[in-house]
Amino acid sequence: MSPQAGPGEKITSVAGRGIPLHGNDIDTDRIMPARFLKVVSFEGLEHHLFEDDRKTNREQHPFSDIRYNEATVLVVNANFGCGSSREHAPQGLVRYGIRAIIGESFSEIFLGNSAVLGLPCFTADHESIEKLQALVEKSPDVTISANVETGAIAAGPLAFTASVPPALRDAFVSGQWDPTSMLLADFGAVREVAHRLPYVAGF
C-alpha cells in the first residue's frame, strides 16, 4: 500500500492497480454503514467498507475479490458518494489504500471531504469509465496512471482525459489541499469580516 500523502505534500499524479465498482448513486451509507460511525476515531474503518453490500453480494463485490487486493485507484460511475456527509466514507477508502478515484461524477460533499484527505477524484465521460472498468476486470494487474495537473489517464492500451475541479487540482498540485493552516494564515482578516457582520457586532 502506498503511504497516505501528508499535509503539505504535493499530489501531482497517482499510479496503481485499479478496482472497478459498478453502479450509479452509490451513497455513503453503502460505503460506510451508519453503525460503524459509532466511534470516536477513524481507526479501523477500512475493515467495514461496503460491509452490507459485500455480505449481500458475497461472490461478486469487488472489495471482496482478491484480484483487486492491491488496488489503489477506484473506478466508479455517476453520483458516487451521495447522501450523508460522513467523512467516515472517504476515511475508510483512504485507510484501505485508495489514492485516487476516477468516476463519471461525485457528490459535492464527498468530493470536498476526499480533497481534504489528499484523495483526488477525477471526472470523465461514461464511455471512458466503462472502458476502464472493463479493462481492469480483464487485466486486474494493469497499472492506471492519473495525472492530477493534466487530467491524463493511462492504463494499458487505454488513454483518455479526465478532470479534477480547478480549485482542487491547484490545491493538490501546490500541496495546499489541507486548508487549516491557510484558513488561519490571515486571522486578522477573519476578525474584520466578523466585526463587519451586524449579527456578530450587534444590530
Partner: peptide
C-alpha cells in the same frame, strides 16, 4: 451547508471554510 469532519475541524479552528 453540510461538511465533513476535517472541515468541522477547520471551522472550529478558524470559523471558516475553503469553498467554491
Amino acid at each position: 451547508m453540510g461538511i465533513g469532519t476535517s472541515q468541522v475541524r477547520d471551522v472550529l479552528a478558524s470559523q471558516c471554510l475553503a469553498v467554491e
